[in-house]
Structures are given as structure tokens and as C-alpha cells.
Design a protein around this nucleic acid. Sequence first.
DNA 1: GACTCGTGGTT
DNA 2: TAACCAAGAGT
Length: 292
Amino acid sequence: MSELHAPVLGWYDEHARDLPWRRTSASAWSVMVSEFMLQQTPVNRVLPVHEAWLERWPTPAALAADEPGEAVRAWGRLGYPRRALRLHAAASAIVAEHGGEVPADKEALLALPGVGDYTAAAVASFAFGRRHVVLDTNVRRVLARTVTGVELPGSSVTRAERDLATSLLPDDEATAATWAVAVMELGALVCTATSPSCHRCPVADRCAWRAAGHPAYDGPARKVQTYAGTDRQCRGRLLGVVRDSEGAVPGTRLHAAWSETAQRERALASLLADGLLVRVETGEAEPRYALP
DNA sequence: GACTCGTGGTT
DNA sequence: TAACCAAGAGT
């Protein structure tokens, strides 16, 4: 038992947020939906969409029976709308291959569309109490600071990092599952990226980064994600036009949404390639575009 | 590994 | 205010 366990578990017991997907009444499907939505997206923006989603599609079968375009529409402005498409595809796979029940095995979860190492471990751990290393940006930051003594983890997960996380995972299955969510919560609420609240941290007295005097990050420059004027912004603008419309939208509407032709055409082509939009032949000269 | 893929709040 | 960042996945 690491000396980090007891204080972190105790802190979590007292300070954990009451999130819908954490309640004992929450289904594995609720947990899985939350994990898809939380990929690169803050909790506060996920909450209302998650609630509406579960009310409309309480099971994987319910979602699979609906059009993928409806998932894209219900995704709203969460961002990265391909996640909506993948969640729909994952629901279909769960119906086709798992009898409509979210699988509990990490390997089975990993085989689903849109489920990577993090999400597979998170669903197995949070929904089914399985023992897995759940390594997200929060956990990586907490371990980087408390154990390694640096402000921030590197750009990608290293072998050493995974070994460290594995060595800290409690042996007992139930304790391991609670530990996973507790470390994550500590990173989300206290050991935050830009302004950590060390005075509220249960392991501040044994934090290597704090003991070293909070040395600043000195690794390679972290990539800054620009947005204005990018293809991503253009795609978002175009998809938004169709998402907020009743039926198929004529190309002129897209033209009005983004004036630069070359970029608009490129973005439209990529949206069609991703399956986020489909071309609807009208018999007229001008094609229309709709959700799939 | 490096890149792409949305959106909006915070500093 | 421009930069930073938020429970990653897929190519």
C-alpha cells in the first residue's frame, strides 16, 4: 500500500462530486456515454447533454435503432462530432455482438469504435469495478507532480509512466477502482494544470514537486492549438448550419457560412468522408447536404 | 511520434 | 487578449 492511497481515498470520500454517471443507480451505458462526451471536454458542458442523451436513449439498443444523424444533432456543440458517430457505431456493435449489454472486459471494450485505452479502462473500472490502470491527463499530472517531481507530464505516455501507475494500483479490485477515480478527481479539482490548490491537497506534505519548490515545466514546448481560420473551425461552421436546420440544406447555405471557397470545399469533402454529412441528390442542378 | 479533429471558459 | 486547456481516439 503506497503512502498516497489512504489520504487520496479519504479525500475522495469526502470531496467527490455527485456526478450522474457516478451514482450507484447509473448504468454501464450511462458511464460509457459520459466517457465519450468527456474526451477533451469539460464536465460542466457535458452534464446537460448527457442527461438529455440518457433520457432519449436509455440503452445502447435505443440509440442503435435511431439514425446516426440524430446522434450528431443531439451532440450539439460539445465539439469533435465524430465522437457522436462513433458512439452510435459502438451502440450498434454492442447490440450486434454483445446482446445489447455494455461489455465488462477491457479487451471487448477496446474493440468498440471510439474506445481507446483510456476509455476501455475507465468503463471497465468505473462501471464494473474492474482493476485497471486508468491513465488520463489528470492522473498523469498528479503522478508527475507527487511522485516524479515535475510540473507536467510529457506529450505522450511513456513506459515509465505506465509502470509507475501500475505499481501504484491497489491489489484489491474494489479499492483499485475507487483509487482510479479518486486520483482523477484529485487532478480535476485540486492538482489542476494552471493553478493547483496545494493547501487543499491531501498529499501536499509528501509531494515531490512541492518539496522541490514547484520548479516550472522545462520540457519541450507544448503545442498550441490555434483555431480561428482553421479547417476545424470551417468544418464546425458548416456542420452547424446543417445541424441547426430541419432538412437537407442547399449548397448555397454553406457558401454563405464560409466564404473562402477552397477551404470550404476541402472542409465539406472531409465532412462527407467522415460520414458526418451526406449528399442528397435532388434532381436539380444543385445538391443538398444532410445529416446521415 | 506527429497530426488532425470543436468548442467555450479562464487567465 | 491571445494563450491555455478540458476524463482522447484514429490515422
